[in-house]
């Protein structure tokens, strides 16, 4: 395991900077334009862990698709290390809410997907083994996705992303569908992976506590069309405790921004 980590470290590239500048986006639905993002600007430092928090359906996931390069914004620009994002690239890998593993591939073959697509699998098979080690699923390498639990499947999806040594890891509510115990475990794993490998992380979540336990910075969005409502620094060392009064205070503040202060 230690050897495996050292091996991974040699490939590892530290995080990239991400500049989101005055991005607006809209969907065409039956001829009508539905604005989803309105003049969003966020500058993410290399290696930062940024949580994007907002009401359900506000357009956070759309922003992630733009960062991934899966869609193009209607206005504004996105840059990774000063290079404009126009199409998907394995330096920016997305982990979706559903693990979306390919059911016809074994766990190993799923993790190998990125290297295979880039045509470098033959010479770099070791990286797949290392990524599986990293998420603790080496013994399931020959299993099919339907044989895995939800948490295991999401860990495979994480390994499939990490094997590419992304500079920006884009997480679209990856823990949203897991049970609360698995979730807490995986939050800790995420933080330690991020600390070890140093990639820039963008996490969409609708759970204020999750955002505060994981991120350096929490960006709160308004209702659709999403605007940046607040940009909050979370200056606390890791590992963080859920009961930390400082975090509880921030949480109250964030819920207030989201219009939920009545429940507190």
């Amino acid at each position: 395991m230690v050897a495996a980590l050292a091996e991974v470290a040699t490939h590892h590239a530290a995080g990239a900077a991400l500049d989101i500048e005055q991005v607006s986006h809209a969907f065409d639905i039956d001829g009508a334009e539905l604005p989803v993002l309105s003049d969003v600007s966020i500058a993410v430092e290399p290696g930062e862990f940024v949580a994007l928090l907002g009401p359900s359906g506000c357009g956070k996931s759309t922003l992630l698709r733009l960062v991934a390069g899966l869609d193009k914004p209607k206005a504004g620009s996105l840059r990774e290390d000063e290079i404009r994002i126009v199409r998907p690239h394995p330096s920016r890998v997305v982990v979706f809410q559903d693990p979306t593993l390919f059911p016809w591939r074994t766990v190993w073959d799923n993790v190998a997907l990125g290297l295979e697509a880039q045509g470098i699998l033959k010479s770099q098979r070791q990286r797949v083994d290392d990524a599986l080690d990293l998420v603790g699923l080496s013994s399931f390498r020959n299993a099919y996705p339907q044989q895995l639990s939800g948490g295991m499947a999401q860990r495979v999806a994480l390994a499939r992303a990490l094997v590419n040594d992304p500079k920006i890891l884009v997480l679209d509510e990856p823990l949203g569908k897991l049970d609360s115990l698995t979730r807490i475990t995986m939050q800790a794993e995420l933080v330690s992976l991020w600390q070890r490998k140093g990639f820039t992380t963008l996490l969409v979540t609708h759970d204020a506590e999750e955002a505060l336990v994981l991120a350096n910075r929490v960006i709160v969005f308004s209702e659709r069309p999403a605007r940046v409502k607040a940009d909050i620094r979370v200056d606390r060392p890791y590992p963080r405790h859920r009961g930390d009064p400082y975090l509880a205070d921030l949480r109250r503040q964030i819920l207030g921004l989201l219009g939920l202060d009545a429940t507190w």
């Binding site: 899966l70 998907p88 394995p90 979706f96 559903d98 590419n164």
Partner: peptide
């Protein structure tokens, strides 16, 4: 479409999308 999204973010070219995603699925 989620399968194509995953493959594209991992660097897949159109031929990969046809041969390794569309056909097996």
């Amino acid at each position: 479409g989620a399968y194509y999204d995953v493959a594209r973010t991992l660097g897949a070219k159109p031929s990969f999308l046809v041969l390794k995603v569309a056909i097996p699925a």
